[in-house]
Design a protein around this nucleic acid. Structure first.
Lengths: 214, 214
DNA sequence: CCCGGAATGTTCATGCGGTCAACATCGGGC
DNA sequence: GCCCGATGTTGACCGCATGAACATTCCGGG
């Protein structure tokens, strides 16, 4: 059995998930650099090296955290989008949804800084190790899919139907991602909440405007 | 004397700068996380703890690297701006300069990834230490000033002269910063060079468009 | 010209983290 | 009921940040 038996046995039963949980907590508390094998093991009440039975090493644990963080980010975006009331004008509705999705993105970054910072970034621990994990192209990041779809919907309703948006998706993503990081660890951190809203609004305006106009 | 005497004396003569130099090299090679006191000391040919006579600790060394990186970034932007030919139409000239400044920004990030990544980010080493160093507001980052000025020039030549750009500067900065990071360590890394240019163009178009339109 | 303190480096020691190898224990399949 | 493989544990090694005590050098009085 792999259940949660009360008494602590020699074998944990679900160490892998327990470690991931602890690692996620660590990431929430202090970002990816805080995710430390020994500490995660300590929290689970297991010896420092037990993790190696379930992960290649720290990198792989971080990768698990990263996946969790990406899922959580996408969830935040979907929740934000779900809250926007429908509109009659499809164009307006599309724009509202785009804005909501973006807000959900930034909101997650601001509310879960540690987790957000763990969501991206190549596995960069050893100096000369490319990432051997998966991560094919830009896909597989649901957050990106959500953004792209919302963007596509706006473009589809544009007055002169836009034909090619060569890389407009990436541009929009750049904006929200950059904004998030500037707010989190960049020079925009420690910005009074109200000014922060201004900045967010400005950026979203830029994104929407850039989507609507050629 | 504090010069570069040939024979190695007990006293180095200019250890501080030598260490900064080594640290900058390290940052170039592997980003901020590669900046390690012991390695820098090793490269300079000095004992591991000698650095403590010149820096509080690793954080302060990193701060020195960060300042260097920011200067280099701003230089890259200025160089890029200096290369754009003048135009007759002041509005077009302003837009061209804005684009050039942004390109200089992204170019630096792509050409000097390690250094670029060292240029921002709060000094985050110990879990619970806010940064005690300076870093007042958003100022003092010459790169930001360059961007803001270029942006202001575009806004000034806009057909309906824009009155308030509440935080449009930050929006533009978000775009270039986010783009840089996505290209560097985000899902846009390992993008073929040509597609990369598309993405850059798209983003700049969004920035300019957002500046021109309400 | 000589001396003593202040700078600047060095050595030694502590503690944390990643990772490996050898050993212990448990859980099932035969 | 026994044996093997999966899962944990101990112990050890190495690199790094950092602090304390000691060594060397420089420089400004006297």
């Amino acid at each position: 059995m792999a259940a949660i038996s009360g008494g602590k046995t020699y074998h944990h039963g679900d160490l892998r998930n327990a470690l991931i949980g602890a690692a996620v907590d660590l990431a929430c508390e202090g970002g990816p650099e805080r995710v430390v094998l020994r500490e995660a093991a300590r929290r689970v009440g297991v010896s420092p090296t037990a993790a190696y039975r379930h992960f290649e090493g720290r990198c792989e644990l971080l990768a698990a955290v990263r996946d969790h963080a990406r899922r959580a980010l996408a969830d935040s975006m979907e929740r934000a989008a779900a809250r926007v009331p429908g509109a009659d004008d499809p164009a307006l509705a599309a724009e509202a949804r785009l804005a909501a999705v973006c807000r959900g993105y930034v909101a997650f970054a601001v509310e879960q800084p540690g987790l957000y910072r763990s969501a991206f970034g190549a596995p960069r621990t050893a100096p000369g190790d490319g990432d051997h994990g998966a991560e094919g192209g830009t896909a597989e990041v649901r957050a990106f899919t959500l953004l792209t779809d919302a963007l596509g919907a706006v473009a589809a309703t544009a007055r002169p139907p836009r034909a090619s948006r060569p890389a407009a998706d990436a541009a929009a993503w750049s904006a929200v991602h950059g904004l998030s990081l500037l707010l989190l660890e960049g020079p925009l951190r420690r910005l009074p909440a109200q000014r922060r809203d201004d900045v967010v609004d400005s950026t979203l305006a830029m994104v929407v405007s850039g989507t609507r106009n050629p």
